[in-house]
């Protein structure tokens, strides 16, 4: 793939809709299952991932001409690890409470396939500005997916949104249980598929 011809806004929306990391690419599923009991968690991890994605994409776009092709992948990993360490330290210092809630997942961003994949397929072939918009779109797409699952689980499981009470009645504890993450993600994927299927039928 040569440098992209899409405009910046198209690149930005591409990450959120057409190539949504969670629902479309089905990458980085671990936090989507493990960390979506509340919307707040989804939002915070989304911010962290957006930060890492944008900064890594920009860094790689800047230095892509100097990277020797044989050490391409190690350089990507190293870049990501550096930015993950940075966001990890910043979060630990300024929002300690929320950082504890996310536990090990902030550090695990380093192994999220989505970030490496974007660097490999996009950032190393495009310029700084385009990489920035692509990274931002992917990060926000990830955040959107996390928050969508978090919305369903928190609302149905605890009757709250961002910690505020919304529903008045007793809710289904099942949705907060760890195993329900799998069911929720599976069901939401199926719904996305169904909607897409119907839309295609209509177009015909």
């Amino acid at each position: 793939m040569a440098a992209t011809t899409k405009s910046n806004s198209e690149l930005f929306l591409n990450g959120i809709l057409n190539e949504n990391p969670i629902f479309r690419l089905a990458l980085s599923m671990c936090p989507a299952v493990g960390l979506t009991t509340t919307m707040t968690n989804g939002l915070l991890l989304g911010i962290a991932v957006t930060f890492v994605q944008v900064f890594s994409s920009c860094t790689i776009a800047l230095i892509k001409d100097y990277i020797h092709p044989r050490i391409r992948i190690p350089t990507y990993t190293f870049t990501i690890a550096t930015w993950v360490t940075v966001i990890d330290m910043v979060l630990a210092a300024y929002v300690p409470g929320a950082y504890k809630a996310m536990g090990i997942f902030v550090k695990l961003i380093v192994a999220f396939a989505i970030i490496t994949m974007r660097l490999e397929t996009f950032a190393c072939k495009n310029n700084f500005v385009k990489s920035f918009w692509d990274g931002l779109g992917m990060g926000l797409g990830f955040m959107f997916g996390m928050m969508a699952i978090g919305f369903v689980r928190e609302l149905l499981g605890m009757g709250t949104l961002f910690g505020y009470k919304v529903l008045g009645f007793r809710t289904l504890l099942f949705f907060v249980l760890p195993a329900a993450g799998f069911f929720c993600v599976g069901l939401m994927m199926a719904i996305f598929n169904y909607v897409e299927f119907k839309l295609k039928q209509k177009r015909r």
């Binding site: 089905a26 760890p178 195993a179 993450g181 799998f182 069911f183 599976g186 069901l187 994927m189 199926a190």
Partner: peptide, 12 residues
């Protein structure tokens, strides 16, 4: 994938 996820949920 969706059915795989539901299966994984049962395993969990």
């Amino acid at each position: 994938l969706p059915i795989a996820f539901v299966t994984a949920g049962l395993f969990a």
